[in-house]
Amino acid sequence: MAVTAIGDYPVLPRDGVENFHGNQLVAVGWDHHLMIDAPMAFPLPAGMPFAALVGEVIPVAYSPHPEWEKIDWEAVTWTLDGEAFVPNMEASLEENGIGHKSVIRFVTPGLDGLWG
């Protein structure tokens, strides 16, 4: 549907990748761990290795969670933009198919978050 407007309504997206100074926006969510309130967003270079995302970026957001220390990273399963996904740790975000405004989610079997 086209927007209801008086005249022409140009499409002016504000968050195109070209506005992020060489980075792309990537969001990461840890399923069922809602003490960290929402998926967190990061501006990251497309060439960053996936291992750096796991080792340096994700901990800034998620390490305060009491279950963080217990994560067995070998057992973690991932989704990328809603599809099951096996990341190549040495490859870059781009090589892993992670694009601008992609959402990466991870599940930690046996660790279910803080529930009563």
């Binding site: 499409v11 997206p13 968050d15 195109g16 969510g29 399923d31 069922h32 809602l34 929402a38 998926p39 933009d81 809603g82 694009g99 601008h100 405004k101 992609s102 959402v103 989610r105 279910d112 978050g113 529930w115």
Partner: peptide
Amino acid sequence: TQISYRVSEYNGDK
């Protein structure tokens, strides 16, 4: 226990 994620593609962006 699960965040609700919804997404649309528009003009080449998510």
